[in-house]
């Protein structure tokens, strides 16, 4: 792993809380991750583990209140995004930082044509003239594989299928040549044959533009197929971090092991599916030790009382578990 280059994105010890109905939910606690130019980082974990809050934080889109940035730094090209003014952030969003969400309708405005939205973004962020913006919008729609872009540029989002809307959103996100693309479950709502098309497209565009990509997903298959590095989150924490090949070859954290084993296989018949008994602790619960302890068969007294820090077992492969590496009989 080359670590000399300063990372494009360096999240350090991020903490985000939600204050709801007199309780404090620690949605994200002490999350650190970094991403270099030209790389794709997967953020994987189950519902509510804080993936989306992490990505929303980078764009400074966590609603406040009830949300609150409770600590840490988000260094983007050396600058702490948490200290920027809202107008400075607005310049970055859709400019140097592009975003794609699961549901395109949340970022596409239904009352404007697809072309208009891309043109608007080009004129705000890149100062393109009306004519140049329109040409570039059509070029982008063509690039993302929207059929007959010259006529569809004047379509409204609701006139498109789910897959086509996702293509338009990618065109919008990439219009201004962002350095960083944040994609939160970009294919989760799509059918599997369309998902494959969109993943293909994202891979192609990434190698073409050199943008760094942070891909948030709950799908280990998608991670294996598209990411260089992975961060596994559980209950608001990073529990494991590794290059993708290492994570799949040598999963260390008991949660990662359980998660991988629970994925049903399409390629071969197996008997019973492995499960992780129990459920994720509710976000308001106060847990002194490891957050996985209530479901972990290896949990010891230390686990229940002290929070395990993320430590490197090998270069680049970090695990937050007191008992890692798990001893296996030779």
């Amino acid at each position: 792993m080359e670590q000399r280059e300063a990372p494009l994105l360096d999240v350090r010890d991020l903490a985000v809380e939600f204050h709801v109905g007199g309780t404090v939910q620690r949605a994200v606690q002490g999350v650190s991750l970094s991403l270099n130019r030209g790389r794709t980082l997967g953020v994987v974990g189950e519902s509510g583990c804080g993936k989306s809050v992490t990505s929303l934080s980078i764009m400074r889109l966590v609603p406040q209140p009830p949300g609150k940035y409770a600590g840490g730094q988000i260094l983007f090209d050396g600058q702490d995004l948490l200290t920027l003014s809202e107008s400075e952030m607005r310049k970055l969003r859709g400019g140097r930082i592009g975003m794609i969400f699961q549901e395109p309708m949340t970022s596409l405005n239904p009352v404007y044509t697809c072309g208009h939205q891309i043109e608007e973004s080009l004129s705000v962020h890149s100062g393109l003239s009306k004519k140049a913006a329109r040409e570039r919008a059509i070029e982008m729609l063509d690039l993302v594989g929207l059929p007959s872009p010259k006529s569809r540029v004047d379509d409204y989002p609701h006139q498109l299928s789910g897959g086509q809307r996702q293509r338009v959103m990618i065109a919008l996100a990439l219009a201004n040549d962002p350095d960083l693309l944040i994609a939160d479950e970009p294919t989760t709502a799509l059918d599997v044959t369309i998902q494959a098309q969109i993943l293909d497209l994202m891979g192609e565009l990434r190698s073409r533009t050199g943008a760094a990509v942070m891909l948030v997903t709950h799908d280990l298959g998608v991670v294996a197929q598209t990411c260089d590095d992975v961060v596994v989150m559980y209950a608001g924490r990073v529990v494991e971090r590794a290059p993708t090949a290492d994570l799949f070859a040598d999963p260390q954290h008991p949660y990662t092991v359980g998660l991988m084993a629970a994925v049903p296989r399409i390629d071969t018949a197996v008997g019973r599916l492995a499960t992780i008994p129990g459920t994720v602790p509710p976000p308001w619960s106060k847990i002194a030790g490891c957050r996985f302890a209530s479901r972990c068969p290896l949990a010891s007294e230390q686990c229940r009382t002290q929070d395990p820090p993320l430590r490197d077992l090998s270069p680049g492969h970090g695990v937050a578990c007191w008992h890692a590496p798990i001893e296996v009989a030779a």
């Binding site: 799908d219 298959g221 090949a245």
Partner: peptide, 10 residues
């Protein structure tokens, strides 16, 4: 089209 959870098999 189903993405396989194996980075060696893209």
């Amino acid at each position: 089209a189903a993405p396989r959870p194996d980075p060696a098999m893209r």
